Simulated assay, not measured.
Amino acid sequence: MKSSDADILIIPGWSGSGPDHWQGRWLAKLSTAQLVEQEDWYKPARDAWASRIVAAVRAATRPVVLVAHSAGVSAVAHAAEYLKPGEVAGAFLVAPASETAKRAIPGMEQAFTTHRRERLPFPAVLISSATDPYCTQDEAKALAEAWGAEFVDAGDSGHLNTESGHGPWPDGLLRFAGFLRGLSAVPQKQIQS
């Protein structure tokens, strides 16, 4: 699959991703990318964030690929509960926030703080850094295993955000292209009435 064959849904975490963040750059660069807008980027609410993702998936006209960062990864896992097999072609999950770290974020809804531990109904890759201050690699590996996601060690890369020097993140874009190529061809999405 090529990026032009998919609706790429960008799902930022707490506070959103600005134009210098790799997600903001991908949004500007990839012609089929679109932002899943949340009502309040500073007060993540499990049901509200998950329902926005589900609505964006169901509004898509091509196969859907989710690209999530930090608390956005948690939102994808919560949304997966409401998604049917085949609605999402794959998910590219980067730098999940740990359950402990999320409790420290002001405005975070308590229900958002516990990760779902069921297998995702779509192929996924989870990328984690050995030096991420918001999630240990042991926790990220456990999440990847529970979700049935491929685990990728990003080395000494911090939280894989602008502050850690990952504005452009060319290695991530190459990894994403490889992930897309590995997704099996999915027929044109059927528009449901």
Rank of each mutant, 00 (worst) to 15 (best):
P121D: 10
A48N: 10
F151P: 02
V73Y: 03
L143E: 01
Q137V: 12
A48H: 08
E81K: 14
T114W: 00
A111T: 15
A89Y: 04
V94N: 02
A149N: 01
G24F: 05
S17M: 10
E139W: 03
E109Y: 03
G24E: 07
A95T: 11
A146R: 09
A97I: 15
L120R: 06
A95P: 02
C135N: 14
D47H: 09
P44Y: 07
W26D: 04
A59I: 08
A56D: 09
W14D: 15
A124S: 14
L30I: 11
S15G: 11
A149H: 03
A140K: 09
Q23S: 04
S17N: 12
P123S: 09
T61L: 06
A45H: 10
P133D: 13
V94L: 09
S31F: 00
G13N: 09
Q23C: 06
W22F: 01
G148E: 13
S129C: 02
A144G: 02
A55M: 12
K102F: 08
H78Y: 13
T61C: 02
K84D: 14
A28I: 08
A50C: 11
A75P: 02
R58E: 09
F92E: 08
I53A: 06
A104G: 11
Q23N: 05
T113R: 11
P19G: 01
V73Q: 04
E118I: 13
R58Q: 14
D40A: 09
H69F: 00
S128T: 02
I11E: 05
A97L: 14
R103N: 12
E109I: 08
V73K: 07
G16H: 12
A144V: 07
E145W: 06
G86N: 07
Q38G: 04
Q34K: 14
K141F: 02
V67L: 11
R119Q: 15
A80N: 10
V57E: 07
R116W: 05
F122S: 01
I53L: 05
H78P: 03
D132M: 06
D132Q: 06
A91C: 03
V73W: 00
W14L: 15
A77R: 11
A50H: 08
V94C: 03
T32A: 04
G16P: 04
R46P: 00
